[in-house]
Design a binder for these strands. Structure first.
Length: 571
DNA sequence: GCCGTTTTCGGCCCGACTGTTTTCAGTCG
């Protein structure tokens, strides 16, 4: 069994133990063990062979046994027995807001409900309201939670969530008495998807701020409203939380609610080592009741107090960011001089060469790469060899006309056929400035076949870049099965760039791979995959992912001058 | 179940809010 599957089993064990009413710390141990395994950089097989698995923080002797058993045999009797003892419907019940492990267990023990449908029937029959610890409101809340389960459980693309959040943030900042306002949570950490919106406000008068927020026209339901916190739900099912704190606590609250949970745990441990307990309220000295007055008014002050540089929010994932000694140089949107993977109306885009170049100029770009589909992408009106050569001519003519300050690079998004060969003649590919190779068919190949297919394409001398290496569509389609480590190795060996496809629903290759890959020499290109002029703006989403992957400007082709890009392309 | 410069037991991050209670447990982040 591979690492990802083992992580899944450990996570599931944690959930099952919760439903069993197990010791919460034991539950956490499985969850954090899963996390440690998921984020470790070493090869699992090597670590096991060397007997080093137990040296990982968060993995003790019990987990070593279980992970090794799963790795060797793919089975674990402990897990099988545990799973068999719990009805799958109980796990589903955890998705209902307000129900956690203990309540689900009580419902199951008292009413013998083993499915969401049975729970719904029990609520409708009024059997839940009569239970110890439950009442009429709980019953109604469970029913509404079941009704809206799908919408509530849904995550949302960062791009869409941000579009919803920006006007609310601006509205909060305009309110009188609001000294500061920021978004927090996964939105601020630039995660590819977000579960809800978090707003943090500094004000001495919380009430009018709460009232404004819960009174927003798009609010469908107010799920909580208190002294410092309100929660609302929008029509789309998206939830938003607002916290209003006194100005002197703003930095602590902002840091706390930005997270991630793992980052906060690490920060608290660091604070404890310095003799302080860290919370969203402040730093409290050991044995004292109130937070100490330390003159901390910004996150930068807080980090400095703990001997750290100001760690950018997008790096706060508990992945070693507390080990840095200075703020890393991260890619900035202002350093982007152009983008490479975009379509025109020659294939399935909507705009002409001229219109795309004008949009690139409006963004301040020096150059623009056009890469229409090749002929196998029939659904996208892909170009055959003759049409590609004609397109090259059109682009050359455009450049020579001098009508634009933007230099257009003539490229292609060439299909990688199921056997790893390419969709165009070598002579055609040679006529182009560069080529992005992408998989658009036979997604369900076994991992070995897909990996060999993509590596064969990477090894072709015409290949400049690999497009969306896993083919995932966030929240819609799983990545295809591929061994990315081998693909990355091949890309580095062949001096092939891997793109960050910046379309908000792709963001592929995933940020989790970039830090290590780039350290090993992989070069990145940020490719908006624009199909119309407005799509060029997606490059911002790509920059976000590059930052989240710790990429410095020098590791990203888009920061180079047109001349340097030409040299990279070999022309 | 994990961990240890307080080291093999006894902690483990912690506070707001809700709904149920009549002082608190459970959920959530």
């Amino acid at each position: 069994m591979d690492k990802a599957d083992i992580v899944g089993v450990l996570e599931e064990i944690a959930v099952l133990l919760e439903l069993k009413g197990e010791n919460p710390f034991k539950i956490r141990a499985y969850a954090s063990g899963a996390r440690a395994l998921e984020t470790m950089e070493a090869d699992l097989a090597v670590l096991i062979a060397e007997g080093q698995l137990g040296s990982m923080k968060g993995i003790g002797s019990a987990l070593v046994d279980k992970i090794e058993t799963l790795h060797a045999s793919g089975e674990l009797p402990f897990y099988d027995k545990l799973k068999a003892s719990i009805a799958p419907g109980l796990i589903e019940m955890l998705e209902i807001p307000g129900l956690g492990g203990k309540k689900v267990k009580r419902l199951h023990d008292a009413l013998e409900v083993e499915s969401v449908a049975a729970l719904k029937a029990a609520c409708e029959a009024g059997r839940v309201a009569g239970l110890q610890g439950f009442g009429a409101k709980s019953e109604a809340k469970i029913l509404s939670g079941i009704e809206n389960r799908a919408a509530y459980a849904k995550r949302h693309l960062w791009w869409m969530a941000n579009e919803r959040a920006v006007p609310i943030l601006e509205g909060l900042r305009r309110l009188s008495g609001v000294e500061r306002a920021e978004v927090a949570g996964s939105l601020r950490r630039l995660m590819e998807t977000v579960g809800d919106l978090d707003f943090i406000v500094a004000s001495k008068e919380p009430e009018p701020v709460m009232d404004w927020f819960t009174g927003l026209p798009e609010v469908r339901e107010v799920t909580a409203k208190g002294q410092t916190k309100s929660s609302v739900r929008f029509e789309s099912g998206l939830q938003a939380d607002l916290r209003v704190v006194p100005p002197e606590q703003f930095a602590f609250a902002l840091h706390h609610f930005t997270g991630s949970k793992e980052h906060n745990v690490a920060m608290r441990q660091r604070a404890l080592a310095a003799g302080y307990s860290l919370s969203e309220w402040g730093l409290t000295k050991k044995d004292e009741a109130e937070p100490a007055a330390l003159g901390i008014s910004t996150e930068k002050d807080l980090f400095a107090f703990l001997g750290l540089p100001e760690i950018p929010p997008e790096l706060r994932e508990g992945l070693g960011e507390l080990e840095i000694t200075e703020v890393p140089s991260l890619l900035d949107a202002g350093a982007i001089r152009g983008v490479f993977h975009n379509h025109t109306n020659a294939s399935d885009g909507r705009a002409t060469i001229e219109e795309m170049a004008a949009a690139a100029a409006a963004l301040g770009f020096e150059y623009l790469g056009l890469a229409d589909h090749s002929k196998s992408s029939v659904q996208a009106n892909g170009l055959n060899d003759a049409r590609v050569l004609k397109m090259v001519e059109s682009i050359r003519a455009f450049n020579e006309s001098g009508q634009s300050s933007v230099h257009v690079f003539a490229g292609i998004e060439c299909d990688i056929l199921p056997d790893g060969s390419l969709d165009l003649e070598d002579a055609t590919l040679a006529a182009l400035d560069y080529a992005v190779m992408s998989v658009h068919s036979a997604f369900s190949q076994p991992e070995g076949e897909m990996t060999a297919r993509v590596i064969r394409a990477i090894e072709h001398p015409a290949t400049t870049m690999l497009g969306h290496p896993t083919g995932r569509l966030l929240l819609r389609r799983e990545p295809y099965r591929i061994d990315l480590e081998k693909v990355i190795d091949a890309a580095i060996a062949n001096k092939v760039i891997i793109e960050i496809n910046a379309n908000p629903q792709r963001l592929d290759m995933d940020w989790r791979h970039w830090r290590r890959a780039a350290e090993r020499g992989l070069v990145c290109a940020i490719n908006p995959d624009a199909h119309q002029t407005s799509g060029l703006g997606y490059f911002h989403a790509g920059v976000n992912i590059a930052r989240k992957g710790w990429l410095a400007p020098a590791q990203v082709l888009n920061t180079r001058s047109a001349k340097a890009v030409k040299e990279w392309f070999g022309g």
